[in-house]
Design a protein around this nucleic acid. Structure first.
Lengths: 157, 157, 157, 157
DNA sequence: TTTT
DNA sequence: TTTT
């Protein structure tokens, strides 16, 4: 690496992680994390707030951790790097999507928070990777076949 | 701020700063900074490198510093936050652009580097650079028509 | 600032905050935050862990927030800078203590965690700063008089 | 790692790196990096500045890079973690020293700066610099007696 | 879409 | 001295 490309995010997931599988069988997780900023509007005297949504992708073991332990609302610390991908929309026009490629993941919820409400034991079965074994996950992904190209599709979000 | 939204970039400018003026007369600077990552391709055994370009915006005094001291090739340390802006393209479709709003700027070139070779005193020339009135003059210069839309244009890059 | 001096800590408090008052009446809070690192010992095959304790000082409003909302066990995100202070021990020998001067403080416990167990309403009284009004605080500080020099003593910890 | 323990330093070396060799032959480099902060003193109206010195240790390949490329005055970006070591002074009293264990090292001097003025090829000379066997030779050089205590001495600085 |  |  020439230079430094570092992002640090602390925030809450807006949704359950979106899990995919790469052609070689490795797990990929996309999470959407909110940070917000608030300030006093000088003109109106009112308190204003703006929320920023960060799209973060994790691979392999860290992706599996996302699938097993993170849920909508989970608070996380993420360290990663910015990555802008180029793709073509349906009109053949170039488009760019910036996301964070996660390098470090820390769960910030207390064990008590995680214990209640569905953080069941992560038990992988021979036929299925661990992150597919949870109900919440399957709810969001009625995927007939984990399409080889699911990971290579061009529409980033 | 609820949460943390922090970016740290160290890299070199790909171009001279793009200077603008806000309707209220404050300076805005956009800089484009490259970081690169290199690794060995396991399959080909060749060294590969990918460059990431970061679009960073500074306001007010820091924008003026950009205009005065930074040039194509300058090395900088930037600390800022991610900000994704929504805009409509000519087809009326929603588009998103992610940029870094700069909070901290450190110039990393040695004084010698800055002194030699074109870091001349910031003085407006007849040809007028895009950021016409350099900061020092700017304060005293009543902008004739600060092109309301210069800052509000919808095409981010 | 020439250069960058930045520390980012996420961890749990080992004790309640230690509160002091500066001669000018401003609050000072010292907190001790643990981070730990664990790895597999190659020789023994056992899992080893080492804990690092970070001494962090906050001033003014942020110190008051520490006193009001943080307790032993609280999880925090802290951004700050390193500061090494020189002092003399009883033998007149020079000694050095490195601590983190906090610039940003984020509480990471869920509101539920904070709600239970003594996070009573922060109610300042005319005679006392808000951070002195809590029972837990006073338990730890049987201080007859908030000694003017409490902040200027030479023994750092 | 439970928690986050991260330090980011950008500054200049106050001296040439101090090189040592561990009993197993691996290189160790200690560098001392300055950052400074300046502000206006409200009382005197004068500009004040304070310099902070950071003691940073690198191991193995990164230590070799320090020895080969860094010199007094070199500007660096360092990412690392805080580590406080306990030791006994000559009176048997416990003492603590906080240093930064370096994880990432980026040289920030322009190639021109490095090229001119003493950044000569790393080749051991008859006179033998303190870090006697430069890395390239080191691997091939069977250390006669790697002075066990060179690395284990108790006085940190 | 989350949290506070 | 905390947490996991």
């Amino acid at each position: 690496m020439a230079g430094v490309n570092k992002v640090i995010i602390v925030g809450n997931l807006g949704n359950d992680p979106e899990m995919r599988t790469m052609p070689n069988g490795e797990a990929v997780a996309n999470i959407s994390v909110a940070t917000s900023e608030s300030w006093m509007d000088k003109n109106t005297g009112e308190r204003r707030e703006v929320t920023e949504w960060h799209r973060i992708v994790f691979y392999r073991r860290q992706a599996e951790v996302c699938g097993e332990y993170l849920r909508k609302g989970s608070k996380v610390y993420v360290e990663g790097r910015l990555r802008t991908r180029k793709w073509q929309d349906q009109n053949g026009q170039d488009r760019y999507t910036t996301e964070i490629q996660g390098d470090v993941l820390q769960m910030l919820d207390s064990r008590a928070d995680r214990g209640q409400g569905g953080y069941s034991a992560p038990q992988s079965t021979p036929a299925q990777p661990s992150y597919q074994s949870r109900p919440a996950q399957q709810k969001a992904t009625p995927q007939p076949e984990p399409a080889m190209d699911a990971f290579d599709d061009d529409i980033p979000f």
